[in-house]
């Protein structure tokens, strides 16, 4: 039986954050895959059509902004919504995320209800 829940890719170098987001999004009705840095996310997105990306900022090999730019560039070219979640709350960070192509920028920690609500809102219309 194929899984027709919306597919989300959780991109974070911290294994605990991936587990946390995986648990919350799984409960919220998503099929969850993980990537540990921006490049892994790009490679994963080349093979699978995701319905949503949840992306951290500070990651080795490829940071979150570059990751989102690459997801939006012709290398991948995904139209799927991107939610960036970061520990940073310096002025300008959110603008940078939107300039890179993110749909929403949130600052950690994000509580369970909020993440579920935002994820559902961003993927509204994707068959569940």
């Amino acid at each position: 039986m194929t899984d027709n829940r919306p597919k989300v890719l959780v991109v974070d170098d911290a294994a605990t954050v991936r587990l946390y987001h995986r648990t919350l999004l799984d409960e919220a009705g998503f099929e969850v895959a993980e990537a540990a840095n921006g490049l892994e996310a790009v490679e994963a997105a080349l093979s699978t059509a995701f319905d949503l990306f949840v992306v951290d900022v500070n990651m080795p090999k490829m940071n979150g902004y570059t990751c989102v730019e690459t997801l939006r560039s012709e290398t991948v070219g995904t139209p799927a919504p991107v939610l960036m979640i970061s520990t940073e709350d310096r002025p300008g960070d959110a603008d940078r995320a939107y300039a890179a192509g993110a749909n929403l920028y949130l600052v950690k920690p994000v509580n369970a209800e909020r993440l579920a609500r935002v994820a559902r809102m961003l993927t509204a219309g994707v068959a569940a």
Partner: peptide
């Protein structure tokens, strides 16, 4: 390469990356 370096562009071919 995702564990090594971002200097190359990954490309998907029918047979793999």
């Amino acid at each position: 390469m995702s564990r090594i370096s971002p200097i190359f562009t990954p490309t998907r071919l029918p047979e793999g990356i």
